[in-house]
Simulated assay, not measured.
Amino acid sequence: MKKIIISTLLALLFWACKEKTKFSYSVTVTAPKEYPVEVHEGWLMDDQKKFICAMPKAGVANTRWLFDGKKAGQGGSKIPYHLNLTYVAYAEKKFYTVDADLPVDKILEEFNKGFDVEADLKVDGEYPLVHDTYNTFTIGAAPGGFIVIWLSAGHHRVEICRLQAKEVFVDVNDFYQNADDENQQQFFDSWFKIAVPEATQEEIKEQGIPFGLWDNYRERFKYRFVLQPYDDKDKFTFQSVGYFNGEANLFYLPNLNKNDYTLVGIPNIAKLSFTQYNTDIEFNDQEMLSVFKELQSKHPNKPMDILVVPTFMYKDFKLSVKCEDEIIPLTKYKVKGVWGG
Rank of each mutant, 00 (worst) to 15 (best):
T133W: 02
K193T: 13
I139Y: 04
A141D: 09
P128I: 10
T138R: 03
D132V: 08
K193S: 14
K106L: 03
R162F: 02
Y134R: 05
E167R: 10
F137H: 08
V117Y: 07
T136I: 03
N178W: 15
P143I: 06
K113E: 03
A153K: 10
A153I: 00
D189C: 12
I147S: 02
Q164I: 05
V130K: 11
V148R: 11
G125I: 12
I194D: 14
I194C: 07
C161K: 07
G114F: 01
K106Y: 00
V172M: 08
C161T: 09
I139W: 03
H131P: 09
E167K: 11
K113L: 12
T133E: 05
V117W: 09
L151M: 05
I160F: 02
Q177T: 04
F188T: 05
Q184D: 04
E167T: 13
N173F: 00
L121G: 00
A142S: 15
D132P: 08
Q186C: 10
W150Y: 15
V148M: 13
T133D: 04
F146Y: 14
P197H: 06
V196F: 12
D132C: 05
V158N: 02
L151I: 10
H131Q: 14
I194G: 06
D174F: 09
D180F: 08
K122Q: 15
F169T: 11
N112C: 07
D120F: 08
P143S: 04
Q186T: 13
R162H: 13
G125H: 06
G154C: 10
V168P: 13
E182L: 14
A165F: 14
F169K: 13
G114H: 05
I139R: 01
Y134E: 02
V172P: 09
E109I: 00
W150P: 00
I194V: 15
N173S: 01
E109F: 11
Q177D: 10
N112G: 08
G114V: 07
T133Y: 13
N178I: 02
A142K: 06
H131E: 12
E126K: 14
S190R: 15
D120W: 09
W150K: 08
G144W: 01
E118G: 00
N178C: 11
W150S: 05
A179L: 04
Y127V: 06
F188P: 09
V170D: 10
E118N: 13
Q164S: 07
Q177E: 12
A179E: 05
R162E: 11
F192W: 11
E118Q: 15
F146K: 05
T136E: 00
L108R: 03
F175V: 03
I147K: 03
T136F: 00
Y176W: 15
V123Y: 08
S190T: 15
I149E: 02
L163M: 12
G144H: 04
L151E: 08
F187H: 11
P128S: 05
V158S: 01
D124M: 10
G125M: 08
